[in-house]
Simulated scan of single mutants.
Amino acid sequence: MTTTDPTSDTPAALEGIRVLDFTQMMLGPFATQVLADLGADVIKVERPEVGEWERGLEFAGRLIGTDSAAFVAMNRNKRSVAIDLKGKGARDALLRLAETCDVVVENFRPGVMDRLGLGYEDFRAVRADIIYCSGSGWGQRTKYAQENRPGQDLLIQAASGLALNTGTAGDPPIAAGTSICDATGALTLANGILAALLARYRHGVGQRVEVDLFHATMAILTQEISAMVNLGLDFTRSEAGIAQPWLSAPFGMYRTADGWIAIAMGELSAVAEVFGDPALADMDAWADRDAIKRRLDAVTPSRTTEDWLHPLLAAGLWAAPVRTMKEAAAELAADGSPLIVDVEHTSGETLQLVGCPITLSETPWRQRLRPPAVGEHTREVLSEVLSEEALRDLQEAGAL
Rank of each mutant, 00 (worst) to 15 (best):
M1A: 12
T4H: 11
T4Y: 03
T4L: 11
T7I: 00
L14C: 07
L14W: 09
G16L: 07
L20I: 11
D21A: 10
P29I: 07
L38N: 04
V42P: 01
V42G: 03
V42C: 09
K44V: 02
V45R: 01
E46L: 09
R47F: 00
G51W: 08
L57C: 01
E58T: 14
R62E: 14
A69N: 02
F71N: 06
A73Y: 02
M74K: 00
N75M: 07
S80C: 08
I83F: 04
D84V: 02
K86E: 14
L95K: 07
L97F: 05
A98R: 06
V103S: 08
L116H: 01
L116Y: 03
Y132D: 02
S136I: 08
G137Y: 09
W138Q: 04
Y144C: 00
Y144A: 00
E147P: 00
N148E: 15
L154S: 13
I156Q: 01
S160Q: 03
A163P: 02
T168R: 15
P173G: 09
A175Q: 13
A176V: 12
A176Q: 13
T178M: 13
G192W: 09
A195W: 06
A196T: 06
V211N: 04
F214C: 00
I220W: 11
S226L: 13
G232C: 10
S238V: 10
A240T: 06
W246M: 14
L247I: 13
P250D: 05
F251A: 13
Y254D: 10
Y254V: 03
A257I: 06
D258K: 04
I263Q: 12
A264S: 14
A272H: 05
V274S: 06
F275D: 04
D277S: 12
P278V: 11
D282K: 14
T305C: 10
L313I: 13
A314I: 02
A320S: 14
P321F: 10
M325A: 13
E331N: 01
H345V: 09
E349Q: 15
T350H: 12
E362M: 08
L369G: 02
P371S: 12
P372G: 11
E376N: 04
R379S: 06
V385M: 07
E389C: 02
A390E: 15
D393M: 06
Q395L: 11
E396V: 12
G398P: 07
